[in-house]
Every structure is written in structure tokens, then in C-alpha cells.
Design a protein around this nucleic acid. Sequence first.
DNA 1: AATTCGTGGATGACAAGTATCCGCGTTAGT
DNA 2: ACTAACGCGGATACTTGTCATCCACGAATT
Lengths: 157, 157
Amino acid sequence: MKLSGGVEWAVHCCVVLSQAEGPVPTQRLAEFHGISRTYLAKHLQQLSRAGLVTSTEGRVGGYLLTRPGDEITVLDVVQAIEGREPAFRCTEIRQNGPLPASPQVCQRPCGVNRVMQLAEQAWRESLRAVTIADLAAGVLQDAGPQTFDRVREWLAT
Amino acid sequence: MKLSGGVEWAVHCCVVLSQAEGPVPTQRLAEFHGISRTYLAKHLQQLSRAGLVTSTEGRVGGYLLTRPGDEITVLDVVQAIEGREPAFRCTEIRQNGPLPASPQVCQRPCGVNRVMQLAEQAWRESLRAVTIADLAAGVLQDAGPQTFDRVREWLAT
DNA sequence: AATTCGTGGATGACAAGTATCCGCGTTAGT
DNA sequence: ACTAACGCGGATACTTGTCATCCACGAATT
Ligand code: SF4
Ligand code: SF4
């Protein structure tokens, strides 16, 4: 079980975008984080499709958050990148073999499946409890109060 | 993010083993679930290495649970198959780019990482709360009280 | 018209998961 | 002693998913 590496990129980008004053192009975002521009573009498009971000095309275009940072949860970002498919996918092996479960028993998910989905639910709730704004506040806490001033300054270059 | 399909197999096997009277060979377990014998063998070996299961070699050998079903959690099984690596792995991109985080700031994990690990923790706790015995009880509930009698009967064939 | 930018498709490199096979050592029955 | 049933580990191959790049296109600014 492994999360896509793009999740890390996307979260960081959202934090930066939450502090930006205008549209930020992919080029800038990639440069800032020292990562691949072309590949990051793919992830930003996923954020766009998920409705977390709007894009303005053409020159001086780029990406903007559609909502303020405190209305975007980490879960939103993770699901935009990872998709909404559950990590545990049952293949219904209980229907195989010499003692298959009867069709009516299989109407509803079994205990195994329930436990797994419940655990993923707990995971999602935990991610839902934190917003991009919370993370931005954490950065300020860790790296100093003028951090985002410097970021904005560099972005304006 | 996807869990190995072997998790489903392993959990089912543990439930069966918790109801078995003697060592159950891979052949039987695979047949019972209608799955690949050779591949299941790999997963059972992982359970063995994790200490959830003991193997007796030679004829009339097979696998036995090392502890009663109520002392084996679903988390134990999942981790035996999936490993204990966290799903979110930070690549420290904050150290890249024109405004890298200072080394002393990077001493401890950032907010992003903390949130992710916390969520995984919640996931694990949720899985830890359920035991193989709980699942076995669920099967009894869903499929009828004599279900395991039939299983034992078939196993003895 | 030239430049900057997002979009989507095609493509390839690489890692991980899935699955099979074989040779080996072990054990119980004959 | 011999054989059959079993677990163990390595080697191998197939499939899928992740990671990454490139390009042609349309849109907007200068
Ligand atoms: S018993 Fe549960 S985990 Fe097993 S095959 Fe059925 S739904 Fe899937
Ligand atoms: S800020 Fe957090 S998520 Fe980002 S690179 Fe550092 S540890 Fe990883």
C-alpha cells in the first residue's frame, strides 16, 4: 500500500497557492519545489478536474484556488490525486470453492469488508479534519512569520 | 493507493485456521477459497515469518495459528502481508528550490507529514480493534451456526 | 505575430504486484 | 529404504501501476 508521490507535491502546491496573490503557472510551482515541471502539470490538471483549482490560460495565466485555504481539506487534495477508489477491494472469494456462500448472504458486504471500509473511513476523517490553512499556519510556526512574504516576493519575480 | 489482494486471502485463511482442529496444508486452503495454490503459499509464508502461524513440515503437515483467534487482530494480518512501511513517504521537497527549509527546521517532520502519519495511525487503530475471532463470529451470524461444522467436516475429508 | 500558458493524448522507463515453477529438506506412512 | 505429502526459498515471467517526458493544440497577453 503506497500513496502516489504526487500527493506530497499537490499539498505543497495548494499551500503555496493559498498564499499567492495572483495566478501561479506550473513553471513557477515546479521551480519552487525543485520538481519535474511536466509531471507536476499532470497533477495540477487533476486538481483542476476535482474543482479545487481554476486555471487561466494564455500568457500571465496559471492556477488559483477556487476556495480559501480553510475550506480545502487535505482529504480533498489526496482524493483528487489518488482517486476515490477504496484501497481494499474484495474479490468475493467466499463465493468460490466447495462451500460457497449463498447469493443472499452475499447481498451485503461481509465482516472483513466492513472492517476494512471502516478503517479507511477513519483514515479519511482524520485527513478531513485538517485544512490547507491549518498547514499554512504550521509552516509559519515552524519556519518563521515572514516565510510567506518571501515566497510571495519570489513568486513576483 | 491499493492494498495487496493477498490481504483478503490471508484474512480468510486465518479465520478458517482459527476453526481448524489440526494443521491445514496450503493445498486445502487454496482449494477451499478457489484461489491459486502456489501464490497463496507465498502469503502463508509471510504469515509464518510474522509469527502469526506455525508450519509443520512433512506429510500431514500444514499451518496452525500460534495464538487463539481473539489474540490476532486484523492489523496483524494486514501488516504481515503489506509490510509496515507507511503509505505516505515524504521526499523532502521542502529542501529544494530557491527557498529551501533550513536543516534545523527539517529536524522534525513537517505538518504535512504529521497529518498523514496521524491518519494512518487512525487507520491502524481501527484495524487493531477487530480480531479474527470477531470475524469468525460475524461469519456465524451471517451464514448460520453450523457453518464451521461444515468447514471442519470438509477439511477432514 | 510572438510568447507564455493550460490541456489532453501518446509514449516509454521503471517499479511493484501477481503468478508459476523447480529443487531442496522434512516428515509420516508403507 | 522408499514414496508421497508437505513447507521453504529462489528464479522467472507476466501484468499492472507509477513516474516522467514530449508534442500538438487552443487560449490569452504583449
Ligand atoms: S467474505 Fe468479505 S472479504 Fe471475503 S470475499 Fe466475501 S466480501 Fe470479500
Ligand atoms: S514539508 Fe512535509 S511533506 Fe513537504 S517535503 Fe517536508 S516533510 Fe515532506
